[in-house]
Amino acid sequence: MLDRLGISAGIEAVYWAMVEHPTWNVDELATSLDVPETVVHDAFSTLADQALITPSPGQEGTLRSVSLRLGLLALLHQAEQQTITQQAKLLAARASVLAHAASHDTHRGREEIVRLEGADTVWERLTEHACTASESVMTLTTGRAMPPGTIETARTLTRIALSRGVTIRHIYQECTLDDARSRAHAELMAEQGEQSRVMSEAPVRMTVVDRKFALIPIGPGPRRGALEIRGSSLVSTLCLLFDLLWEKSREFPRSANTDRDGLNDQTVAILRLLRQGRTDEAIGRQLQLSERTVRRIVRDLMRRLDAKSRFQAGVEVALRRWI
């Protein structure tokens, strides 16, 4: 049954045996399933990564299966997210291909696709939109970081649009917010009225104005310019893509409340899961963070604790009674 969710038959057999016999140890599981103990241990590793088993709070050093309902729902959610991501990528690819094809189609009305050459031309056009938009601006930002010049210009244009009562919805790719300057910008814009969300993978950079105009970059960087799509079915496709991603993305993580040790709720949750022996991947899945973000937070904690290993960090956390 679980093979459709990425769990092999051998690992599934171990899982169901744990569900039916929660007190069995490795030896008993291996004997019952007629497999070597190494197979059971390997299955434990996979099941822990999938958050289907967890350390038993009552018996140190032992594992137990999580609630059957919660475990299977977590697997289904992961499969659904992968499907949604793939669907979003296909929609983005379709819109990009059609836009570029249309820009070279001499039989199509030239007013539908306009090529904006260079970053200055793009920003001038975005300024016009900020000053004339009547309803909404939807933006999808990708990449490792927002360039400083882009941040300053985006900040100005966002304030102009917000001051005119325009609704701004912005989806940030998670890795973009790993950059301190980009995150500070996103937090400031959220405080000033921008509706912000985050997703682990964003398929394409774009800005859609009033659901009538869409700008998508010509290349990976802003220097080459952008294609502006006007009032065509391509804009509708991009709007559909954005709405889909908006529904499946998560709320922008505002600055969390910190305790007297300077720990926010997210950091405390990561520390608790680390003490349970969870991997970065399993922690990210449970807290809806990317593995990269979890690694960054753990690395910052180790630096703060002056710890050379995770074990040493765990000892320091216990000594300081952080959790």
Rank of each mutant, 00 (worst) to 15 (best):
Asp3Glu: 14
Leu5Cys: 05
Ile7Lys: 06
Met18Asn: 02
Val19Met: 13
Glu20Gly: 03
Trp24Met: 09
Asn25Asp: 15
Leu29Gln: 03
Val39Lys: 15
His41Thr: 06
Asp49Leu: 03
Ala51Val: 13
Leu52Gln: 08
Ser56Thr: 04
Pro57Arg: 09
Gly58Ala: 11
Glu60Ala: 13
Ser65His: 13
Ser65Asp: 03
His77Asn: 10
Ala79Glu: 12
Ile84Phe: 10
Gln86Cys: 03
Gln86Asn: 12
Gln87Lys: 11
Lys89Asp: 04
Leu90Val: 06
Arg94Val: 07
Leu98Asn: 12
His100Trp: 10
His100Gln: 15
Ser103Gln: 11
Asp105Ala: 13
Asp105Ser: 13
Trp123Ile: 04
Trp123Pro: 00
Glu124Ser: 12
Ala130Leu: 05
Val137Ile: 15
Val137Arg: 15
Met138Gln: 15
Leu140Gln: 13
Thr142Met: 14
Gly143Met: 03
Pro147Arg: 02
Glu152Arg: 10
Thr156Leu: 10
Thr156Val: 06
Thr158Leu: 01
Arg159Val: 00
Thr167Gly: 02
Ile168Ala: 00
Arg169Cys: 02
Ile171Glu: 02
Glu174Thr: 06
Cys175Gln: 13
Arg181Ile: 04
Arg183Met: 10
Met189Phe: 04
Ala190Cys: 06
Glu194Ile: 08
Ser196Met: 07
Pro203Lys: 07
Pro203Glu: 07
Arg205Tyr: 05
Met206Val: 01
Val209Phe: 05
Arg211Ile: 00
Lys212Pro: 00
Gly219Ser: 15
Arg223Leu: 08
Leu227Ile: 09
Leu245Arg: 08
Trp246Met: 02
Glu247Ser: 12
Pro253Lys: 07
Leu263Ser: 01
Leu263Gln: 01
Leu263Pro: 00
Gln266Asn: 09
Thr267Pro: 00
Leu273Pro: 02
Arg278Tyr: 11
Asp280Trp: 14
Ile283Glu: 09
Ser290Pro: 09
Arg299Leu: 07
Arg303Ser: 00
Glu316Cys: 00
Glu316Ile: 02
Ala318Leu: 11
Ile323Lys: 05
Ile323Asn: 05
